[in-house]
């Protein structure tokens, strides 16, 4: 059968759709338009029917729905079986899944059962209009190289994408169709059970959602000086980020690391303090709207991607900015 349609897997937790789903719908819309095909959301869960409308607003033409109590909490087996069943029946050309812990757990199983290729952690996706192939670009070897991967013969072409790699599209009013299928799996057939869980409140959880990030690097020089970064972040109501050396020096936990081996972020404002701008750091933050760089070396590569640059000593410039911010905000009563 002729494979058709771009699908986006809908990730959700606690009654909320994960933002990466909307980001993928935005990208998926472009790919579907380039292919002249439809964009569908793949929605599995228990009592999730109402999500469909939101998915349409973010660009989906259709939602494939499997609604079943067995799908209440995410578990690999019933979710993977459900998607495989839909994919075998409706033969999509492309399936996109968020490269979250959940998405990575799911995608490897789905691709294996569908006997198809899967490209991990893509940072770029595009359609070659002559071959209709999906060009999937991803980092490998710890971010030292990028590779463009093709899946020429097997279908669907499957890819995972990290959160924040693609922008959040603007929702627009739109209607779509819901296509429902039964799951057909009994609870007894599911080989795993979540017997309990503990919520972990870590700052890392919020980093990829932060609108303002103040990040410090090796240039801070000491744990004591790193406080200056935290103070500015606090004054701005932002979150603290770090380069790898700052994490390795023990100035701040790993959850704050930004870059290839840390988190990918996309805030409105990113202030890089004492960070040189190595490519492994840049890939995690270069999509920020406004980038401010503070560095005492005027030739530091970070200035190549900065919106505003300040050549100076972080231990002098940071306290001055923090003071200025506090004064500016004191005048804006009620804002914070």
């Amino acid at each position: 059968m002729h494979a058709q349609g771009v699908w986006v897997f809908v990730e959700h937790l606690g009654g909320e759709i994960a933002p990466v789903t909307f980001e993928l719908l935005g990208k998926g819309r472009e790919l579907a338009d380039d292919l002249g095909t439809e964009l569908a959301a793949v929605l599995l869960g228990d009592g999730v029917r109402d999500f469909a409308e939101q998915l349409f607003r973010y660009g989906a033409d259709k939602a494939y729905l499997i609604d079943d109590p067995v799908l209440k909490d995410y578990r690999t087996y019933p979710y993977a079986k459900g998607i495989v069943k839909l994919a075998q029946k409706y033969t999509p050309e492309i399936i996109l899944i968020g490269a979250t812990t959940l998405g990575r757990d799911l995608s490897g199983v789905v691709a294996t059962w569908l006997n198809t290729g899967l490209t991990a952690d893509c940072t770029e996706l595009s359609i070659d209009k002559t071959t209709r192939l999906l060009h999937q670009t991803r980092p490998a070897f710890g971010g030292n190289i990028m590779a463009t991967i093709l899946c020429k013969n097997a279908r669907p072409q499957m890819a995972t994408v990290r959160p924040r790699v693609f922008p959040l599209p603007e929702p627009k009013p739109k209607v779509g169709v819901v296509v429902e299928e039964p799951l057909g799996i009994l609870e007894e057939e599911v080989p795993t059970q979540v017997i309990k869980y503990e919520e972990e409140k870590g700052p890392g959880v919020y980093l990829d959602k932060a609108e303002i990030i103040v990040a410090g690097g090796r240039g801070l020089g000491s744990k004591k000086n790193f406080r200056l970064v935290e103070e500015l972040a606090d004054a701005l109501g932002g979150v603290v980020g770090a380069s790898r050396p700052a994490v390795e020096a023990g100035w701040i936990p790993f959850a704050h690391q930004i870059g290839q081996t840390g988190q990918t972020v996309r805030p409105k404002l990113y202030i890089a303090c004492g960070i040189s701008g190595a490519v492994q750091h840049l890939v995690g933050m270069q999509m920020s709207d406004v980038i401010v760089a503070i560095n005492n070396d005027p030739n530091a590569p970070i200035f190549n991607i900065a919106t505003y640059g300040i050549v100076g000593d972080v231990t002098e410039v940071l306290p001055a900015i923090t003071k200025e911010v506090r004064e500016a905000l004191a005048g804006q009563k009620g804002v914070r």
């Binding site: 060009h135 190289i145 590779a147 463009t148 020429k152 097997a154 490519v279 890939v283 190549n304 991607i305």
Partner: peptide
């Protein structure tokens, strides 16, 4: 192997104004 490495290159930062 359904996937193939079609090309590989060294990552470059996005150019900015």
């Amino acid at each position: 192997s359904p996937t193939q490495v079609w090309k590989s290159f060294v990552p470059q930062a996005k150019a900015r104004a």
